[in-house]
């Protein structure tokens, strides 16, 4: 192989590395919370588009640093269903019992942010989630608004490729579920009193 061909191959491989992008698919296990089920209240859950089958793509500014596409699938939706359905029964639309207490919970993803070892100049990935949760009664009167956050970090250490980033996201989602469970536990009395 002559020198010119070698140079072209090296240049091409460098360019290919520069243009490559990461595609992360997130799937996580969130345990069922150890909380008391409130049999007297049923819940209807609604989620914004960024929670149902959300695919995160970086904005133009971030694209210059690193191109990462994160496919959350329905992981976030499953997380909220897992937590809320541990506290309340899922409302059945065919059930027309007028005495039944129903609350409507609307969940929106407000912020998803992360830092990579390159951007933070350290050896770890850090991930934040911030959700806005609106609780309404059956007549759509607002009962409460919650802000729930989740944070996760993972040192790159022994992990290969994207694994540390995926773990940081999973830890942040698990932390969101924990904070959501604690918030719901603390506010459940207020909800019960309001709809009563």
């Amino acid at each position: 192989m002559n020198n010119a061909v070698k140079k072209i191959l090296i240049l091409q491989s460098l360019l290919l590395i520069g243009c490559s992008s990461q595609n992360l698919v997130i799937d996580t296990f969130i345990p069922k919370p150890l909380v008391k089920m409130n049999e007297s209240i049923s819940v209807q859950l609604t989620f914004d588009d960024q929670i149902q089958n959300f695919i995160f793509s970086p904005e133009e500014l971030q694209k210059k640093e690193a191109s990462i596409e994160i496919n959350f699938g329905n992981t976030q939706q499953k997380l909220f269903e897992n937590v809320f359905l541990s506290f309340f029964k899922l409302s059945n639309e065919s059930d027309n019992d007028p005495d039944k207490k129903i609350i409507l919970i609307d969940v929106k993803l407000d912020k998803f942010e992360y830092l990579t070892p390159q951007t933070a100049a350290n050896q770890k990935y850090s991930v934040w989630f911030k959700y806005i949760i609106n609780i309404k009664d059956n007549n759509e009167n607002s009962i409460d608004d919650w802000v729930v956050t989740g944070y996760g970090e993972q040192e790159t250490g022994i992990f290969q490729g994207d694994e540390a980033f995926k773990r940081a996201i999973r830890i942040a989602l698990r932390d969101t579920g924990a904070n959501l469970s604690i918030t719901t536990q603390e506010k459940i009395e207020n909800i019960t009193n309001t709809i009563s």
Binding site: P33, L34, D175, G177, A178
Partner: peptide, 13 residues
């Protein structure tokens, strides 16, 4: 243990 007692013994709780 953390899974069995979720969410009470998580890093933030």
């Amino acid at each position: 243990f953390q899974n069995l007692f979720y969410p009470w013994f998580e890093p933030s709780t």
